[in-house]
Design a binder for these strands. Sequence first.
DNA 1: CATATTCATACTAGGCAAGTCGGAATTACG
DNA 2: CGTAATTCCGACTTGCCTAGTATGAATATG
Lengths: 180, 180
Amino acid sequence: MKLTKRGEYALRTLIRLGIAKRMEEGVISVSSLALQEKLPFKFLEAILFELRGAGYVESVRGKYGGTRLAKPMDSIKMGDVVRLIDGKLAPIGCASETEYEKCTCPDEIHCGLRMLMIDVRNAIANILDRYTLKDVVDVTLRKQERDSAANPKTRKKRAEARHADPADGFLAELLGSKIA
Amino acid sequence: MKLTKRGEYALRTLIRLGIAKRMEEGVISVSSLALQEKLPFKFLEAILFELRGAGYVESVRGKYGGTRLAKPMDSIKMGDVVRLIDGKLAPIGCASETEYEKCTCPDEIHCGLRMLMIDVRNAIANILDRYTLKDVVDVTLRKQERDSAANPKTRKKRAEARHADPADGFLAELLGSKIA
DNA sequence: CATATTCATACTAGGCAAGTCGGAATTACG
DNA sequence: CGTAATTCCGACTTGCCTAGTATGAATATG
Ligand code: FES
Ligand code: FES
């Protein structure tokens, strides 16, 4: 049940590039990205190489070169990026939609574990395949703006938030922004 | 985004033991379990050892010994078993409720990826922490009975079902059984 | 040409998953 | 008691994968 560092870095970098596009920045060098996101330079370079191969980003070589998004943000499904870097979303092969793999279960049709895991994979896919990079960038930017405009008391409260509170989730932010 | 073999085998075996309990069978030897579920004997032994340490199963030593469930099935949350064997449910440390871990993100509070992953972890937890071994055993047994009672045509159709159809999910089965 | 940057490949160290081995301890049966 | 079946328990192996690093060629700017 885990996203690799590779996956995490890829997603973080895409989000960063998405924000850059919104800000009308041009290409960004790998070294800048690595510095800003606090990622290991060479490792990030390799990841970007892979993202480029899949057409998510494009790059300009030579001095003052760098990387930028190659596709409209709303055409980049988070789930597809995860699939590219980390493989299937399903926790287990027999529950995968895109990379099905038989397991050793004697009776797959009546396997309780498989039924359960199919639901898990669907729950994951319902989030990761529903939201695009655009959604994530939008929400991120909105949250940033709101918090920087908020009064100090609110900011304090937010800074103290701890331990992956469900209320800090994506959907909450997406919906909550209406009443902000 | 993956459940290890250890986790898979643990869960499968618990389900098998749950079914055994329903059937009023006594203890089952590791070798029988391994044979029935087609799992490597020694590996399963190790897993059962771990489950025993956590109080999920208990065992009888010596000849005609074996293993049985040690707790009421409705007190065994699937999520907790996964946590025991495979660690946190969240795909990423900073989104974990039970094993939070800081990541290198410069601004965790406004990290879009984190927001997204918090929702993913909640979606997973909403399934795995809601359903207990009892639920899974019930549904499995019900599906088995229904299909063995069904006419051949239906059975044929089910046997042909392919590639993790969402309709084969757990909840669908749980709810669908009302109209079956 | 000097410099900055991407492109591409190869390599490594360590960890961990998945499983195996070997034997000690326990219990039932004849 | 002796033997067979079985769990208990730690050590070990094997190989793949993760998370990087190293090195240098190709490309562009000025
Ligand atoms: S776990 Fe895959 S079919 Fe049972
Ligand atoms: S805070 Fe963990 S990924 Fe950004």
